[in-house]
Simulated assay, not measured.
Amino acid sequence: MQLQGERIVVKPVELSDAEALLKLEKENREFFQRFTGKRDEHFFTKEGQIERIRKAVDDRETDQGYLYAIVLRDTGQIIGEVMLTEPVRGNLQSCWIGYFLDKSFNGQGYMTEAVRLVVRHAFEELRFHRIEAGVMPHNLGSMNVLLKAGFHKEGIARKNVNINGRWEDHQTLAILNEADEEKRSGIERCNPPVIAPPLGPYTHVTKVPHGAALLVFSGQVGTDPEGKLPDDMKQQVEHTLANIQRLLEAESLTADHIVKINIWAVEEVDWSHFHEVWAKFHGGRPPAMTMAYVPGLAMPELKVEIEVWAAAG
């Protein structure tokens, strides 16, 4: 089994990978150590990697865990690892995801691509419903990887992992299996292979079930609960999505019921901030979206306006 990406291939580790994994681990020893528990000297030997791979094969065969190598398509070099750990079946159908990437390849989108491939495989083939991740709050690069891959923040787990002799807080993030969620709203979202995947976190095609009631929420703006409008663009974005969430809840709907969102802005959007609040809003199931810059909105103090179409039934 190989998961094919644009620049990488993600595949289960095998014994023939021992030398390459050892090289990856030794060259990034100090870098990786900042984010993981203590590893003994045996780990940094070929024998240690062989034992690790054999355990990974056994775990894979017994559904106890999954370890994947990230391989460059053009050279065959192993540049990182992704692991699914602590799988729980029964009524939960959940697991945790973790990853490491060669420091020389950080910040180039390789890990985001790898996480997306593994998440899709975990949902479609391994039939997980929920995947969780824990990231130290200062590790913004890893946080952005998960947010770009569709994860949403859920809260802080205080002092829950011992890293290098110190108990560290971790931001908990999670993503849900879209196919499972579709059963609740009846709405189906997909990205057909006839065209390239979306350039951002949204969906190409939305299918509404027959007989569903159509609700249109007029353009919403970023007023706070008291009706005051902040000057800051980021605050207006946050308040606008929060207001939409309240309107959906008032109709007993969730973001799963959204058919289409149209966004208009009069000044440049901070996309890092937008993707963070956008991921929280849609919870890992990005709806169809159109975003445009316009010369002005109804009032000069308005910087963003968002219109929502939803379906119930």
Rank of each mutant, 00 (worst) to 15 (best):
K228S: 15
L229N: 04
D270F: 01
E251S: 13
S218A: 13
K260G: 01
K228I: 10
V237D: 00
V216T: 08
L248F: 03
D232K: 00
V277Q: 07
D224K: 10
Q236M: 08
N262S: 01
A292L: 06
G284L: 04
V259M: 12
M291F: 06
M233K: 01
H257S: 12
Y293V: 05
A265F: 05
V269I: 13
S252N: 15
M291L: 15
R285F: 05
R285P: 01
D270M: 04
M233T: 02
G284C: 12
H239W: 06
S272K: 01
K280L: 13
I261A: 09
S252K: 15
M233I: 07
G222L: 05
H275S: 08
L248W: 04
R246N: 13
V277G: 01
M291I: 08
E249D: 15
R285K: 13
E251P: 06
L248T: 00
K280Q: 13
K234S: 08
P287Y: 04
M233S: 14
F217G: 04
A255S: 00
I261L: 14
L253R: 12
H239E: 13
N262V: 08
V294A: 09
R246Q: 13
N262F: 08
L241S: 05
H257F: 09
V221D: 00
V294G: 03
D270W: 00
A250I: 05
A242R: 11
N262M: 07
L253M: 15
T254N: 04
L248P: 03
S218W: 09
E251R: 15
M289C: 14
G219K: 05
H239K: 04
V259Y: 00
K280V: 09
T254Y: 12
E267I: 06
K234I: 02
K280C: 10
T240H: 02
Q245H: 11
E251A: 09
G219D: 03
Q220E: 14
Y293E: 11
V277D: 03
I263Q: 00
M291S: 08
R246M: 13
W271Y: 08
Q220R: 09
H239D: 06
I263M: 08
H275M: 10
G283E: 10
P230D: 03
V277I: 14
V266H: 09
L229R: 12
W278Q: 03
G283L: 06
D232P: 01
A279S: 13
G222P: 07
K234W: 00
W271P: 02
R285S: 11
P225N: 04
E276A: 06
P286M: 05
